[in-house]
Each structure stands twice: as structure tokens, then as C-alpha cells.
């Protein structure tokens, strides 16, 4: 405890020397993007960051997913253990029969009762993971993922293709509004903003995708806001 107390004591001594704290605490809030531009800004930024966006509806997104899996010849898909997973598995089994489905329903150390094999399964034998965004940030082009039993951390990280379902109705202007809205609510173990596939420009400022995380990001965009068609035009 002594290091702690020494550090805090030194900081307290320094605090008494300070004349005033910043006098500009009360700046007006950051300007936010007008709602009419949310959708187009998000689409624009995600496209610029090499994400693929496929528009669909609340009724047909599972079919859209099946089509995309077929089109991309995805061999295996990892699904979180959610309420709709059973129905989704049925749809995919019928519409994308070539895709091996796996449900993330036991801990990473005890993959289907087989200790130690899950990590290699996840790292070596899984082509895609399906995640669900809890919110969408327009200004930065970001999807919000909240990890938990239904959204394992590695699901959107390890498989080379990350598929994220996002609803237009979950869109907010950006960081400022989102953070203000979160205030006082419990935090998930990981609160993630995802703004594209993994990338790096560490070698001579040349951009390369798929550094450590997903090489591709596919967004299934559910058009569930009535005016979205007009707004986008």
C-alpha cells in the first residue's frame, strides 16, 4: 500500500499548489450530425473502411445471410447462443446447407466437452462469426458490440469474416450522444466500437486489411426505419 499512498500524497501536495482548475469546463456540447445525414454518413464511412454492407429487412435478414454465405462460399459459421439462434439454424440449414454451423454455447476451455480444442477450432476451423450490434454511431461509422454470454468477445475477433447484424433504428448521431445515453448504465465486460475490418499501415504507410482480426467485415443492415429510403437518396 505504500507506493499507492506515496503517489497519492505527492499528488495531493501538488494539488494545493494549483491556482485554479480549467475555467473552460462549461463549453457547449460538441455539435452533432443532423439526423438526415446519419444514414448516408455511416454508409459512406463504412464503405471507405472496406466494410461490405448488404441492406435487408427485419423479416428477410436471415435469408439474406444465407444468400451471402452461399455467395461467399463460407465453409463454417459460428453463432452466439441467443434466443433466435434455433430458428436461424433452421433457416441456414435449409437455405445454406453447405455451411457448417457451430454454436458458441460452452466456455472457450471446454469446447463441446473437449478440453483445449476450442481455441484451435476457433483459430483454425472457423470461417465466419455472426454478431449483433446494439447501437450504430453515424458520425464515425461505428458498430457497437456489447460482450456477454450472447456476444462472446472472440466471436467478432478471431474468424476471418465478421458478420454483424445492425438495425437502422439503433442509430445515434455519434460518440457524444451515445456516451451521454450510457451514463449510469452498467457496462458490459467489453464495450466495443467496430469501424471496419482489422487493418494496419505499419509497413511504409501502406494499408493492409486483416492484420490480426477479421480480414472482412460484412454488415447486414436492417432497414427498419420508415423514411430510410428517402433519407438515403
Amino acid at each position: 500500500m505504500s507506493a499507492r499512498n506515496n503517489i497519492l500524497a505527492r499528488l495531493r501536495a501538488g494539488q494545493t499548489n494549483q491556482t485554479t482548475a480549467s475555467s473552460r469546463d462549461e463549453l457547449p456540447p460538441l455539435a452533432t450530425l443532423p439526423e438526415a445525414q446519419w444514414r448516408s454518413r455511416f454508409m459512406e464511412l463504412m464503405a471507405a473502411n472496406h466494410a461490405d454492407i448488404v441492406e435487408t429487412t427485419a423479416q428477410s435478414w436471415q435469408q439474406t445471410l444465407a444468400d451471402e454465405l452461399n455467395k461467399r462460399q463460407v465453409g463454417s459459421l459460428l453463432l452466439a447462443n441467443r434466443a433466435e439462434t434455433g430458428a436461424l439454424k433452421d433457416t441456414l440449414a435449409a437455405q445454406a446447407s453447405a455451411v457448417a454451423l457451430q454454436v458458441f454455447d460452452s466456455s472457450v476451455e471446454h469446447w463441446q466437452g473437449n478440453p483445449g480444442s476450442m481455441r484451435s477450432q476457433l483459430f483454425s476451423n472457423t470461417d465466419a462469426g455472426l454478431s449483433y450490434a446494439s447501437a450504430v454511431l453515424a458520425e464515425t461509422g461505428s458498430l457497437v458490440l456489447e460482450t456477454g454470454p450472447q456476444e462472446p468477445r472472440t466471436l467478432s475477433l478471431v474468424p476471418p469474416l465478421s458478420i454483424i447484424v445492425a438495425r437502422e433504428s439503433d442509430m445515434v448521431s455519434g460518440l457524444t450522444d451515445y456516451m451521454a445515453g450510457r451514463a449510469g448504465k452498467a457496462m458490459p465486460t467489453n464495450l466495443l466500437f467496430v469501424s471496419g475490418p482489422s487493418k494496419t499501415a505499419d509497413i511504409q504507410q501502406t494499408l493492409a486489411y486483416g492484420a490480426h482480426g477479421p480480414k472482412s467485415l460484412l454488415i447486414l443492415w436492417i432497414n427498419d426505419v420508415a423514411s430510410s429510403e428517402e433519407a438515403s437518396s
Binding site: 464511412l45 456477454g148 454470454p149 465486460t189 466500437f193 469501424s195
Partner: peptide
């Protein structure tokens, strides 16, 4: 405008997490 990932970590794995 933002990095690909912003990760806000608020603890280790919880009992029901995988």
C-alpha cells in the same frame, strides 16, 4: 476519424461468460 477498434474493458470474464 476513429480507429477500427475502440475497446472498453470493464472487468474479467463473468461467471456466465464463455
Amino acid at each position: 476519424l476513429i480507429t477500427t477498434y475502440v475497446n472498453m474493458i470493464s472487468g474479467p470474464r463473468k461467471a456466465d461468460e464463455l
